[in-house]
Amino acid sequence: MRHKYSEIRAAGGDVIAIGFAPIEMLRKQTEELDLPYPFLHDPDRTAYRTLGLGRATWWQVYGPATWWTYARLLLRGHRLRRTEVDGGQLGGDIVVDADGRITLARASRTPTDRPPVAELLAALRGGPGSATG
């Protein structure tokens, strides 16, 4: 997302990242990643529930698809760390227009399920969105 941020801004949009982990962890992550966009905290996951962001199964969290994803990240030089937060909570991506109307809603179905940034940009620009549960 960060590498496409200038394109998102050029399209007149912005990005907001939202996390539920302890705020100290989010602060550290923001500093380490030098994120150019706001990072907000939803400690009790009210927004996650309201927007229908669900939970992964044990197999989805610890199964081969996740290990494969982490192996590829390690090969690319990413650093992984242990986490003590709820690993079952799934994320998602929501795009809204300037008035707050949803133009794309994608609740992750697995821990690694995220839409391509190009799809988010298309929704941001007013293109066709998609709603999946």
């Binding site: 990242a17 927007l51 690993g87 929501i94």
Partner: peptide, 19 residues
């Protein structure tokens, strides 16, 4: 409030955990 950012289209990225 999220409303604070309205006035431009937004991509809201809900994260899993900082792993």
């Amino acid at each position: 409030s999220l409303d604070h950012w309205f006035g431009r289209p937004l991509i809201l990225v809900f994260l899993r955990h900082p792993g």
